[in-house]
Design a protein around this nucleic acid. Structure first.
Lengths: 238, 238
DNA sequence: ATCTACGAAAAAATATATTTTTGGTAAAGA
DNA sequence: TCTTTACCAAAAATATATTTTTTCGTAGAT
């Protein structure tokens, strides 16, 4: 009946929701709740959660079920530093090996992104199309990279960063920032095969994105309780 | 009753066996077989396999179960290049941030490794203790790295590389190679806080290990069929 | 003789039921 | 009043059963 197996469907659905920040980081993911939401058997849910665990979106507490992976400003800083290294590595490889078709794909993706508005028509909510075009743009930029492993690691890091972005971006102040020209600068340098310049610009882009998220969001993290297996034991009730 | 959950036990057991190369890469992992071998329910096995999937040791074929992740010389080359970048990044951070206790741990781990024979007493089989000491040595070398993400990625890559090593090392020619002095050189440079030299030596060490495995093992890969999810689609029904 | 269609067996995927474990509450004792 | 312990409920983990899907073998037809 289903083109995809039930487990895969549940996995994809949950992944998408987690990426969107629709669950509170650190909160519990109850099997039964998910089971009914996704019309799946508990086994399927469990399996989906296991896979998400290794994707770093979910944490498994040995005998207590699963929780949404916590977030913190320290983690975001660390993540970004590592991500910059990896993304620039991929970009260098792509610039070295990319062919004409790749150049074409970049121009297409950039054209698409440039003409997609960041906000929806109502001017309040963020535009899903932009998110997708943005992801595709960054994917395309490095898809001529010849190393499977670099690409695999890049995707992992991208997913993490994307979660932070979607959770925090609506809270961030609408400071002036010309993201389009940042993107354009990267495209120009990349198509000119100037690896150093392109990487420098990509790094600045990622760094600025993080700064933007971080300064608006830092107060938020103060409230974020990081629930880990170990110490936190509150001992009063009533 | 059990200190660890059944799923975790199965996961650990399988992971250890996979790392040891006890399964033919590309071969099928039948749920029932594993179920009886590990005294676990099919659900537990399934969950363990799911987690191994994201560790890159197992591949899931949508409606056909799980297979052992394939290997190839191209993959080993790619893997090593990426691994070198990551390991040296970790080492730089460790050298910058490591304290006295870290220096002590390195000396201890190196002392332990140095005095553990590579081969068992019979001179034929490889010594499990050496493998463990070797892993601990490399772990300790970089455990003062302050970046959680670099360490996480390093571990992923280490697991992959370790699988290749264990599968191939017994096939490799016993060429002359003084691994101990390679290790010692890394230790010396690291404790002298000479990051450039230490990284250079670490890189050479990893590269030599790969060369060693590769030249003896290349003929093997000719026989390895790389089964990927893609094409095989039979299209008849009714 | 080769190819195709059908059917049976095996294995995976899913659903249901049972057992364990955990967390919270209340009651009893210090 | 505070601490400890026993009990209860909720949720996770596991076991068992059922359904679906795939694969393999065989027979029949071209």
């Amino acid at each position: 009946m289903a083109a995809e197996s039930q487990t895969t469907q549940t996995y994809e659905a949950l992944k998408s929701e987690l990426l969107d920040g629709q669950f509170q980081p650190g909160s519990k993911l109850k099997i039964d709740q998910i089971r009914e939401r996704c019309n799946a058997s508990p086994g399927a849910v469990r399996e989906a959660l296991s896979r998400l665990t290794s994707d770093g979106l979910v944490v498994s507490l040995p005998q207590r079920g699963f929780i949404v992976a916590p977030i913190s400003s320290e983690d975001l800083v660390d993540l970004t530093a590592v991500r910059i290294e990896i993304e620039t590595n991929c970009l260098r490889s792509a610039i070295e090996h990319g062919d004409l078709a790749w150049e074409g794909r970049i121009q297409a993706a950039w054209h698409q992104l440039k003409h997609t508005p960041l906000l929806s028509e109502d001017g309040q909510t963020f535009n899903r199309d932009w998110t997708e075009a943005h992801g595709l743009f960054h994917d395309t930029l490095i898809d001529a990279c010849t190393s499977k492993w670099w690409l695999k690691l890049r995707e992992q890091m991208f997913i993490q960063a994307e979660r932070y972005r979607r959770i925090l971006v609506s809270l961030a102040k609408r400071r002036h920032r010309d993201v389009d020209s940042e993107h354009e600068g990267i495209v120009t340098a990349t198509l000119a095969r100037d690896a150093n310049l392109a990487c420098e610009r990509l790094e600045a882009h990622l760094q600025r994105t993080m700064d933007h998220l971080l300064d608006a969001a830092t107060p938020l993290f103060a409230h974020e309780e990081i629930h880990l297996p170990g110490p936190p034991k509150s001992l009063q009730f009533r």
